[in-house]
Write a protein that binds this DNA or RNA. Structure first.
Lengths: 215, 215
DNA sequence: TAGATTGTTAATCGATTAACAATC
DNA sequence: TAGATTGTTAATCGATTAACAATC
């Protein structure tokens, strides 16, 4: 029984890949041609065997003593993550957080291009924030199919989250990056990813308690 | 051999606790007195046994058929996370993201109080953003010990991250919530928590690729 | 009482870690 | 060649899942 496409790759691996990609691009800037798993491991403070397995998942093959070809490695990681072709996305909810996301430069390196913002506030509609035009929410029904947008970034208040998500789904959005603390109800065909700051803060708080109490 | 304090609790558990806390507080608002693990499980779409084990970790005891006392549950989770006493924090780097964090209301429910911002930009220094005064970075040496601050939130550009961290450590900061994609070098006594948006985006991108290609 | 829910013990699953042969 | 680094196979560890007795 051969299951070529069935070699599923774990979530921890997927979450580490962007860090390798970023370092590889840094090295490429400096005209380096190869990089070893050992190097990534040292910089990122993780075990080198983890790095090797992660990189192997993306299909890169290294040479003993030399390491991995940087250009090929970048290609493979980007391919694996679907970051070789830029994904256009809409951002919904242009409050503090939403505006910050609109203005964040770093996503370009992650294959993400935010093309416009959406909000309910009439004061914001029609203006541009960091060069991105802000539309009323209901314009989604027109623009999502017309611009062939698959991804939305959700940065509305918690109370509005589910209503907006229903509209996004209706409009034809396939993936939702959820910056609210709300668990969204969506059909099975829609993928969501929750970005939960309070989880990270919880981790840090527990660690801090421990060092403060010398445990 | 009795190891009372040694019952270590896993990171996945710690990361789920804020969601229970949030729901419990919502119910308390509605004057509910008890809640079942089954309820949390349904809302959050996780297995009820996971919820029960997580809650047990915080020391709450439930009653069969009834569930958990909400007030006691909130107390226990907050205690466990160290969120019963508010932690004061400084925010360093008041760019787009830093400003958004300064203005974010939600951290109050997570025992976090951002008391001031710090930046290198002379235009920002002396101004207030969302009511928080902005100081020059070097004021950290004075204010961290004087105000007895343990936690810093790092939202500076990647290039500046390590330099700023060295200063934070010198000034006496014990915990750093790192919003840059840089792996920080710190002494063993300092705890750090990296908030990595690109990891979340990587997860979502892979999921999206799968649904788009009907895998 | 009956049955929903808790809490515990055991089994499974997946990720990390260890050991080591292969090779440039 | 010697040795650093890759890639693979096996062992360990920890988290999730399953099974079930206890109880309000």
């Amino acid at each position: 029984m051969v299951a070529v496409f069935d070699k599923t790759i774990g979530i921890p691996t997927i979450r580490r890949l962007p860090a390798y990609l970023r370092l590889a691009k840094d090295l490429q800037q400096k005209n380096e041609k190869t990089v070893s798993a050992t190097y990534f491991a040292e910089i990122l403070d993780i075990d080198s065997i983890v790095v090797r397995k992660d990189i192997a998942s993306t299909g890169s093959l290294g040479k003993p003593r030399i390491g991995f070809d940087i250009e090929e490695l970048i290609d493979n990681i980007e391919n694996f993550l679907g970051w070789n072709n830029t994904t256009d996305a809409f951002l919904v909810g242009v409050g503090n957080l939403g505006s910050a996301i609109l203005g964040y430069q770093g996503f370009t390196g992650n294959g993400l291009n935010i093309v416009a913002g959406f909000d309910v506030d009439p004061q914001k509609i029609g203006t541009k924030i960091y060069g991105k035009e802000i539309f009323p929410i209901d314009k989604l029904y027109d623009l999502v199919p017309r611009m062939n947008i698959n991804m939305a970034i959700l940065a509305v208040p918690s109370k509005a989250a589910q209503d907006v998500v229903d509209k996004l789904v209706d409009a034809g959005i396939r993936a939702i990056w959820n910056f609210t603390p709300v668990k969204l109800k969506t059909p099975d065909t829609i993928v969501t990813q929750k970005e939960d700051l309070s989880s990270g803060l919880a981790e840090l708080s527990v660690k801090l308690s421990k060092v403060l109490h010398h445990k």
